[in-house]
Design a protein around this nucleic acid. Structure first.
Length: 466
RNA sequence: GGCCACGUGGCGGAGUGGUUACGCAACGGUCUGCAAAACCGUGUACUCCGGUUCAAUUCCGGACGUGGCCUCCA
């Protein structure tokens, strides 16, 4: 099959050709660890996890390197640390915040069925030159200064956007327009209003590292330039993230990396996932429609019940990754229902080969709606194999149903006992009693499904009502 | 104001210059003690206005609408 990907930089869908098929390299911007990840944060994690799985399938599991960074230096983190651990020294408080948040993030995305990336570097470990010689931020900034792309002014090191003739190509922003807009704060020490910070000095009570420009901390964008180079080289295959990162973050990453390395490109394909809304509205704390991944998994805040990670994953994948997605209770119910159905269809069937139709749809810039349509046409064996490729239907049907039951805290033993009593009542044609028991179970949220066993005798199964 | 994405049936959501998306819901049927489930079958669409064309939901232009970015928010 052929893999075609949409590239934000060239605004077209192209056949994907890796630089080195024996080591396909992808970088995705990861979380800033200061608080629980929200459901919007989950989108790029899930979307690029599917791409990671697809690449592994196509090129071999040992021939794909996926890097997703953890940003553990940020002013929001400092604020949170000071707020939550006022008694502790700042560095210690910061470490507590970032470690707790990072491990929560791992637990959340694992529940969403995401594989661990090959590397998950932390920004703080790539500030200063490293013993292992991998790329670091300070060295990168030195190179930018040496090549005439950065300058020191007003206690900062700034990137000189005018030193890069094609700055702004990714986001379609020309420098002239930026000036005309006059929306950017004009700092007297900047040569150009669009110049951005590579390094800034830290005060006593801010985290800092000793550098040639004094004790300070890195700007926002340089970490990704350093960590991608550290593990993937100066030029790699795919760089992904949310739509909102196109400008300024990715634009500036490109500027830094290309100018520091003297390359024509940073990554050959730039991929961006669309945004998420909740029930038709922008998700925000003030609207009261702000949900973390963890809340959806473990509380009844969204739709009055808990949701399985697998249902969340499928709900997220039902929409093409570049389209805006409306996150709704209805959408989650649909996803869950689809999984119920598929688990029924698959039964105990072993996984066979991944469907060629599914692969073709997936290869068309990850056309997941098409993929799902194809999945509905598969045999049990092929459905299992194809869904597994997407990180779905990875449990057994029994596990899936058991988890559903557990989520709604239903006493299985009591249910089974009532069903036996009803079966007996039906056998003696006491339908009044049989219907009474059915109503009683319905009140517990249990729906009965009557059928016939292989021997022709009545068999009743049950599931949790939705 | 600048830049970008998008507007498909009751809902979600693909795709196509003329022929069935798919799923959910709805409706009809089979099954059932009655239901539910399951199975079979059915219907409804392409924001508006121009243009190109034998033919446009699909191409071009415009209008309207929605969302995003342009102040470190995925």
């Amino acid at each position: 099959m052929e893999l075609r990907l949409y590239d934000t930089l060239t605004k077209d869908k192209r056949v994907f050709t890796p630089i080195d098929p024996s080591d396909v390299r992808m970088y995705v911007c990861g979380p800033t660890v200061y608080d629980f990840a929200h459901i919007g944060n989950a989108r790029p994690v899930i979307v690029f996890d599917v791409l990671f799985r697809l690449l592994r399938h196509l090129y071999g599991a040992d021939h794909v390197t996926y890097v997703r960074n953890i940003t553990d230096v940020d002013d929001k983190i400092n604020d949170r640390a000071a707020r939550d651990f006022p008694g502790l020294p700042l560095n210690e408080a910061i470490r507590k915040v970032t470690e707790a948040t990072a491990s929560q993030f791992q637990a959340d995305v694992t529940a969403l069925g995401c594989l661990s990336p090959t590397h998950q570097p932390r920004a703080t470990e790539f500030v200063l030159p490293r013993p292992d010689g991998r790329a670091d931020m300070v060295t990168l900034i030195k190179q930018l200064i040496a090549r005439g792309h950065a300058y020191e002014a007003g206690g900062e090191v700034l990137f000189d956007v005018q030193s890069m003739p094609d700055y702004g190509v990714l986001s379609g922003r020309r420098l002239e327009e930026q000036k005309a807009g006059a929306r950017i704060a004009v700092d007297a020490h900047k040569k150009n209003p669009a110049d951005f910070v590579l390094w800034k000095l830290s005060s006593e009570n801010e985290p800092g590292w000793d550098s040639p420009w004094g004790r300070g901390r890195p700007g926002w964008h340089i970490e990704c330039s350093a960590m991608s180079a550290a593990y993937l080289g100066d030029v790699f295959d795919i760089h992904g993230g949310g739509l909102d990162l196109i400008f300024p973050h990715h634009e500036n990453e490109i500027a830094q990396s290309r100018c520091a390395h003297g390359t024509h490109a940073m990554a050959n394909y730039w991929m961006h996932n669309g945004f998420l809304q909740v029930e038709g509205e922008k998700m925000s704390k003030s609207l009261g429609n702000f949900f973390t991944i963890n809340e959806l998994l473990t509380t009844e805040k969204f739709g009055g019940r808990k949701w399985s990670g697998e249902a969340l994953r499928l709900a997220m994948l039902k929409t093409h990754y570049r389209s805006p997605i409306d996150w709704t209770v209805q959408g989650l119910q649909d996803a869950e229902k689809m999984l119920d159905r598929w688990y029924d269809v698959v039964g105990d069937a072993p996984a066979s080969e991944v469907s060629a139709d599914v692969l073709d749809a997936l290869g068309d810039d990850m056309n997941m709606p098409k993929v799902i349509a194809e999945l509905h046409r598969q045999s049990p064996e092929s459905l299992k194999a194809s869904a597994n490729l997407l990180g779905l239907l990875t449990q057994t049907g029994a596990q899936w149903r058991a988890n559903q039951t557990q989520d709604r805290s239903v006493d299985e033993g009591a249910v089974e006992a009532l069903i036996r009593a009803r079966t007996e009542a039906r056998a003696r044609k006491d339908f009044k009693e049989s219907d009474r028991i059915r109503d009683e179970l319905a009140a517990m949220g249990v729906v009965l499904k009557d059928g016939k066993g292989a021997d022709g005798k009545p068999v009743t199964t049950w599931e949790i009502a939705r």
